[in-house]
Write a protein that binds this DNA or RNA. Structure first.
Lengths: 70, 70
DNA sequence: TTCATATTATAACAAATGCTATAATATATG
DNA sequence: CATATATTATAGCATTTGTTATAATATGAA
């Protein structure tokens, strides 16, 4: 699964809006939106933040396993 | 104290090189170097990452109190 | 001191981010 | 259905970041 789909999945599982996820990750809404629409890929810090966030939320290990690779 | 000085202080207290700090924060060496030389200010995620990092390391509350404001 | 090594400073460029505004789409409520 | 509200998509622009390379400075060992 590509990064855009991964973010959509995470957000769907947690039933959050792009804006909510952005706030929790300490990034802007535009950033999350561009991730999901394949415009941008996360930088190093964003990868780590999303990875940690998913762990905190107890998400599927399968879903987050490759998060640090994008 | 401005952000550049704050980063230098943090690094001095922990006796780390710019490269070591960069690795721990999941940012590049260039990013930390530019912070300390006043070329850039941290983005939202970087502020949060540095703040969390300082807490983990048990640094002075006084030193990190304003980290999220830059 | 001399020399090798490590650390720091700086630059250029592409890519990602933050901000703002606007349009398109979805959702809910009357 | 109609319409207000929320969510998502997109764009432009300034700033920050990542990468790479190079120079300057500091540190330590012979």
């Amino acid at each position: 699964m590509d990064f855009a789909q991964t973010v959509k999945e995470i957000r769907a599982k947690l039933n959050m809006s792009q804006e909510q996820l952005a706030r929790e990750l300490h990034v802007s809404f535009a950033t999350v939106n561009r991730w999901e629409n394949g415009k941008n890929s996360p930088n190093m810090l964003a990868k780590k933040a999303l990875y940690d966030f998913c762990n905190e939320k107890g998400l599927n290990e399968a879903l987050i396993k490759h998060l640090l690779d994008y």
